[in-house]
C-alpha cells in the first residue's frame, strides 16, 4: 500500500474546467460554479467489474473544502477492502501554480508520509478504470479546446467540447490524444467524457448517471467509467452526502491518523 494513493473518488471532486475561446469559457465557467461546492463529504462505493463479471469493491469516506480561491483541501479515508482499511490520504491543492502537498497515512506502519502524486504516472488506481493521472488537475495553459457541436447525448441536449494537450509532451503526460466532453445545455453540467488513446481510438467513457442537487450545485453521485477496449468498468456511487461546513482540523495529519 506504499503505492501512492489517490482515489478515483477525487476524480469527481477535481474535474478541472478547461477554458479557451469565449463560448467554451462561458460553458466551463458555469460548470465550474456548479461543481465548486464549498464543503462536501460523502461515502463512496466503487465497484470494479471485469469483462468476465468478476467484481471487487472499494469503500472510502471523502471530505473536501475550498479554503479560498487558491486552495482546495481533500481527505480520503479507506474502509474497504480490509488490506487498505484505515489508510488515509490528505491533499492540499493549490490553484495558483504551487505544487500540491500530499500525505498518506499507512496504518500498518503507523506513519504519515509525504508523497508526490505526480510521480504516480499513468497506472490504474487500485485496479479501477481511472488512472492516477486522471486525478490531477490539468494546467489550463497547456490545453487547447474547441466547441465541436451541439448534440443530444443520452436524451440530453449537450454542448460537445474537445480538448487536448498543446504539445506532444503534454499529450504524453495526459495519456490521451484528446478528450471529448458533453455539457448539459440547460446548466453546463458535464455528464459525459470520452477519452481517446494515442492512436485516437476510443478508450474510456466517463458517464454520470445521477446527480445530487443542492441549490446551484450539481454533484455527481453515480458515475460509470468504462474501458471500451478491455470491457472493464468502474461504478462509483456516492451516498450520505453532506454540504455542511467541515472544520479545518479535518484536513490535518492529526485527523488523517485519528480516523
Amino acid at each position: 500500500m506504499k503505492k501512492i494513493i489517490i482515489t478515483l473518488i477525487s476524480f469527481v471532486l477535481i474535474i478541472s474546467p478547461l477554458s479557451a475561446g469565449k463560448t467554451v469559457e462561458e460553458i466551463l465557467a458555469e460548470f465550474d460554479k456548479t461543481i465548486s461546492v464549498p464543503s462536501l463529504q460523502g461515502t463512496f462505493t466503487v465497484k470494479l467489474i471485469s469483462k468476465n463479471g468478476d467484481t471487487r469493491e472499494i469503500k472510502a469516506r471523502a471530505y473536501q473544502k475550498l479554503v479560498d480561491n487558491k486552495q482546495n483541501n481533500r481527505l480520503f479515508i479507506f474502509d474497504f477492502p480490509p488490506r487498505v482499511r484505515g489508510t488515509g490520504l490528505l491533499v492540499h491543492s493549490f490553484l495558483d501554480g504551487r505544487d500540491n502537498n500530499m500525505w498518506i497515512y499507512l496504518p500498518t506502519v503507523k506513519r504519515v508520509k509525504r508523497i508526490a502524486l505526480e510521480s504516480s504516472g499513468g497506472g490504474y488506481f487500485m485496479g479501477s478504470d481511472f488512472t492516477y493521472r486522471d486525478l490531477i488537475a490539468n494546467d489550463l495553459n497547456n490545453m487547447k479546446f474547441e466547441l465541436l457541436e451541439e448534440k443530444t447525448m443520452n436524451g440530453t441536449e449537450s454542448y460537445v467540447i474537445k480538448c487536448w494537450g498543446k504539445n506532444q509532451e503534454v499529450i504524453k503526460d495526459l495519456g490521451y490524444s484528446y478528450m471529448i466532453s458533453y455539457y448539459k445545455k440547460e446548466n453546463s453540467v458535464m455528464h459525459r467524457r470520452e477519452f481517446f488513446d494515442s492512436d485516437s481510438k476510443l478508450l474510456k467513457i466517463y458517464q454520470v448517471d445521477d446527480f445530487h442537487v443542492s441549490g446551484k450545485y450539481h454533484y455527481p453521485t453515480k458515475i460509470t467509467m468504462t474501458n471500451v477496449q478491455t470491457e472493464h468498468k468502474s461504478i462509483i456511487e456516492v451516498t450520505e452526502i453532506s454540504t455542511k461546513d467541515i472544520p479545518e482540523r479535518y484536513f490535518t495529519t492529526r485527523y488523517l491518523t485519528d480516523k
Partner: peptide
C-alpha cells in the same frame, strides 16, 4: 525533515 523535490520525496 521530509520535503518534495520535483516529483520525488526526500527525507
Amino acid at each position: 525533515y521530509a520535503t518534495r523535490v520535483g516529483n520525488t520525496t526526500l527525507s
